[in-house]
């Protein structure tokens, strides 16, 4: 039985989290880690790596479906996550069996939006490797 909604998972995306994610991924883009550079951008302060917040979607999917494979996820990073933002991931089942997924900021605005295809959900299955 596939759940109607996915468990919510939240996290505070602070500077420590951004720096830790930069070290793990070796992605030291100044947009993320350089506060002086970030101050010159339209954002005004550092923005988090999109994939940092995306992990909350993966955690939500893991809580719902365990380690079932294969699984596919497609997202757009629709709004930057500024440093020191609380974000929450969740999802809702679609008519076709896939799941609309999102990460939202404290104001409830989508920062990430997309679709997940857990194993057994919907007609579309992830392409298999050659």
């Amino acid at each position: 039985m596939m759940p109607e909604t996915l468990p919510e998972v939240g996290k505070m995306v602070d500077r420590a989290a951004i720096l830790a994610y930069a070290a793990i991924t070796d992605d030291f883009n100044p947009l993320h880690v350089d506060e002086a550079f970030a101050a010159t951008t339209p954002f005004g302060r550092p923005i988090a790596h999109g994939m940092l917040s995306l992990n909350l979607v993966w955690q939500s999917l893991r809580r719902a479906f365990g380690e079932a494979m294969p699984i596919s996820l497609e997202v757009r990073f629709v709004r930057p996550v500024l440093q020191d933002t609380q974000v929450t991931a969740g999802g809702r089942r679609r008519e076709d069996g896939a799941y609309d997924v999102w990460v939202r900021d404290a104001a409830g605005l989508d920062v990430i939006a997309g679709i997940a295809w857990p194993s057994g959900a919907g007609e579309r299955k992830p392409d298999q490797p050659a």
Binding site: N29, P30, H49, L54, P70, I71, E74, F77
Partner: peptide
């Protein structure tokens, strides 16, 4: 080297195994 200021716009993943 990459230019500073690249922005990640969209991402797709297919996981076959962990």
């Amino acid at each position: 080297p990459r230019p500073p200021g690249n922005v990640h716009a969209a991402q797709h993943f297919d996981l076959f195994r962990l």
